[in-house]
Simulated scan of single mutants.
Amino acid sequence: MTQYLLSIYQPDDTAPPDDLDQIMSDLAALNTEMQKAGAWVFAAGLHAPDTATVLRRQGSEVLITDGPYAESKEHIGGFTVLQAADLDEALDWGRRMAAVIGLPIEVRPIQDS
């Protein structure tokens, strides 16, 4: 089985929705369903991009700066790693996640090491 990263794209400077508690409850139920199906590997929410620290090599030095890495209108607010038989199965889980949280989900296969 291949592992896939499902990245949750969250708009910057947006107030949490009024129904955030319901969304989180529905997401927990979906995570439980993925666990029971043997698909769920790991999931986490991330702090805001302004909490990031970026390390960048410049010549022989590594510079440390406050994040985020790039300015944008959205950021990765959380992610799920799952395993699926194929891309179609991973997309099905991603589709269901997008329906639950109402935000864009990027599905990307993880390279074998």
Rank of each mutant, 00 (worst) to 15 (best):
T2W: 07
L5V: 01
S7V: 00
P11N: 02
D13S: 09
D13R: 08
T14V: 08
T14M: 04
T14Y: 01
A15F: 05
P16T: 04
P16R: 03
P17I: 02
D18W: 01
D19N: 15
D19C: 06
L20W: 05
L20V: 13
D21R: 08
D21M: 06
D21G: 02
Q22W: 03
I23A: 04
D26F: 03
L27Q: 11
A28R: 08
A28V: 09
A28I: 06
L30A: 11
E33L: 08
M34E: 05
Q35R: 15
Q35M: 13
K36L: 10
A37D: 11
A39H: 09
A39V: 03
V41F: 07
F42R: 04
G45N: 14
G45I: 07
P49A: 12
D50W: 13
T51M: 14
T53M: 14
V54N: 12
V54I: 15
L55K: 09
R56M: 13
R57H: 12
R57M: 15
Q58F: 10
Q58W: 10
Q58R: 14
S60R: 14
E61Q: 12
L63F: 09
T65Y: 13
T65P: 14
Y69D: 15
Y69Q: 15
A70R: 08
H75N: 14
I76S: 07
G77A: 15
F79W: 12
T80R: 03
V81H: 07
A84L: 07
A85H: 14
E89D: 09
E89W: 02
D92A: 08
W93Q: 05
W93L: 02
G94L: 00
R95P: 00
R96L: 02
R96T: 01
A98T: 00
V100A: 03
V100G: 01
V100I: 08
L103H: 00
I105H: 00
E106N: 00
V107E: 00
R108S: 09
R108T: 10
R108N: 04
P109A: 09
P109H: 06
I110E: 06
Q111T: 06
D112V: 07
